[in-house]
Design a protein around this nucleic acid. Sequence first.
RNA 1: AGGCACGUAGCUCAGGGGGAGAGCACCACCUUGACGCGGUGGGGGUCCAGGGUUCAAAUCCCUGCGUGCCUACCA
Length: 878
Amino acid sequence: MLDRDYDPKDIEQKWYAIWLEKNYFHAQEHDDSRPPYTIVIPPPNVTGVLHMGHALNNTLQDIMIRYKRMDGFNALWMPGTDHAGIATQNVVEKALAEKGISRHDLGRDAFIDEVWKWREKHGGLIISQLKRLGASCDWDRIRFTMDDGLSNAVRKVFVALYQDGLIYRSDYIVNWCPRCHSALSDLEVEHEEEDGYLWHIRYPLADGSGEVVVATTRPETMLGDTAVAVNPTDERYKAMIGKDLILPVMNRRIPIIADALVDKEFGTGAVKVTPAHDLNDYEMSLRHGLEVIVIIDESGNMNANAGPYNGLDRFECRKRLETDLQDQGFLVDKTHYRVPVGKCYRCKTTIEPYLSKQWFVKTRSLADEAVKAVQEGRTRIIPRNWEKVYYEWMNNIRDWCISRQIWWGHRIPAWYCDECEEVIVSETEPAGCSKCKSRTLRQETDVLDTWFSSGLWPFSTMGWPEHTETLKRFYPTDVLITGFDILFFWVARMMMLGLRFMNDVPFRDVYLHALVRDEQGQKMSKSKGNIVDPIVEMDKYGADAFRFALTAFAAMGRDVRISDKRIQGYRFFINKIWNAGKFVLANIQGFDPRSMALDTAKLGLAEKWILFELNKAVREARKALDEYRYNDVADILYQFTWHTFCDWYIELSKSMLNTDGAQYTRWVLHYVMKSILELLHPIIPFVTEEVWQCLPGRESESIVIASYPKERPEFVFTEDAELMSYIIEVISGVRSIRGETGISPSVMLDVVIRVPESKLQSLIGAHSVHIKDLARVAQVKFINHDGERPKKCALAVTKGLEVYVPLEGVVDIDKETERLTKQMGKVKKELEEKNKKLNNPNFVEKAKREVVEEQLKIKEGLEFELQSLQKAYSLLLG
RNA sequence: AGGCACGUAGCUCAGGGGGAGAGCACCACCUUGACGCGGUGGGGGUCCAGGGUUCAAAUCCCUGCGUGCCUACCA
């Protein structure tokens, strides 16, 4: 029996433990009887703490997995975590720093040991939080990107790409974080605009014949200038091309070169060229054979090449240099300017473009395949508008810098020979140099970008490169559900690597959901202090209410604004389900649905109607689920459960339970309640299980493995549903009169219904018990079309019926006159609009016939309503 | 600089070429035996502005304003 109130906490814990114990989430490799359905989790960082984004993402995945599991699929949800190179290293470094230890004190191996220890202790947090949410992952298969198996896959892929010539090592200007001491990929740089300056600096010609003024936002880089570039067509500078300038302060001779990249319109039209610290300049230096002078070191300090500024921080150097330039008369101007600045996505330090040797993946050919796969529809991106974004990025893709100068991660499987400088790339440590046989080899110290290993996730987690049963059965996955913010980071890379190594797309569908923001639509961040903590919400309202809220918010392609108030609103919904369950259970005591053969002919009208409505809800909910319209699923089921089942059917059933047909009412109460629980289970797994377990006639031991409701052709009671809608309208009409004229609910009323045809009259008459019951009516009388309308009555008009409520002795008739006047005004206005439309020959001629007919019908309805209201009005006064 | 969304009831948002919707909030009434975390009834909107297409536009197109996000090597 169910308790008085629903208390989520214990029930959630209880059921999750049972589900695990019963192994319901486990997918079978060796099951040919059911089709597979696969999702791989976007692996959260091991350092992660569950945030709203995770909560949304995993709720949506859990909905799909639970739905498909119930619907007869061999459902696999592959879980795991990501080692998250820089993020994790930062966290562990910070923890060590509190003890006054730096990673350099420990050395590489000891530090990595520390990270593993950290993971051992704290890495399980996010997993336990996912369990709290109710995630039905196959936990036996949990993977970590640094596991032996996955690390092996990483090395295999690296070597294969290297042998294909798709991985190369090269000098390049990379995004360098002077704080993390590592290169970053283009995607790991966040671009912001800051208030800065544009400096104009005078560079005199070496022959004393004049000068060139250059404009720059980073004056300190001039110390490494090796040229000044102008546009070849620029008349102002044409004569100077090829001449030398004297670089101020450094007193070095640098040439004036011509390059089409220079924009004549910007600044002075002359650009200083610093090949070691700017990507464009570096590329220019390659075109023109310029010298490359590095002046900033990897910590962001000036080095010996910066002459007098050696050892200064880059920003300090800027200040000193400005003073010096001014003193020496080289500074022409300094104006305010909005400067685009790149920041490290982890620590927000300003990025330094930095010349260094890095490893790259040649992406062009891989990207082409990834584009083709989507164009051919082998993978669908949902919502569709992201396809364009995907193509755009893939078509403009640049090579992917995959080396990181940190310690935590997959160490690049390359060795350098000290003797002959040969580079050996191999899955296992080579015994000696393949060229000179030397034994003195040094392994590359760099590790791989985290996304390199997560790019393999859909197949590495299934045991690749082994040809496992899991891979055979579950790859490619059915859908990837993830936030659009990692479309490039992750989805794009999985596409490229999946196609290259599995010869097939990694997923059939990619569903990209929006970001979760706060109530004002702001991105949540610690600094803003607007973080909403999922755990706190679940403590307050329970996991189910929280999940339902997220689902209801997840409209396709729109940001999710979380609101505590609405989570609370759905908490009330959970309670409503609980109470509906209580009602049903109390009224079907001792009833066993299996002991009764259902004869649909014997069902009552209300029973047929609710089964008809249930069919509709099932159909619509399934369709919405199949199309990833989560908010629609939530809405459809909310509406059906609360406003159709609870508000109407349960109320209707109350009187039926005392009649001869009570067995049928019990059967229907049980059946619909059970269906509702099953329909809702993917969204709100806990309450639904708790209530479901109390119902008799379960055909499985848990709702987790019960079958998802299907539409039933024998429940298509179209005519009965139509008749029921008349009755519902009558009840609503009477209630409305009551409410608006202020008739107390305790006063029993009589009603007179004027019906256009006698057949309908007898049909409604046969079920007038519902009207009596729900509208609190003592007597229902009928009059036909010719009959005289009763006097001094309130009137409700609906669906061609006139519902009269005699008012004499019940209420002041002024209120009803007022109400009728208002109602007539409304109807008149609508009718005018309808007439205008229907009197327009263009409309009648050009609009579709169904539309015209429909409009005509509405018009007739309105006319009827108006007439009835007018008559009632006069009868009221007379 | 380009691109993509979005501007609908007080709030949060659905909808999307033919009678303006939901939840919350608001007002009135209700100790009806599942539920006051409830029930019934009700008020409330030039669907951002302007133009165009159409018989018909909140919905499609263009322009503007506003907001948010993404991408980018303009020093």
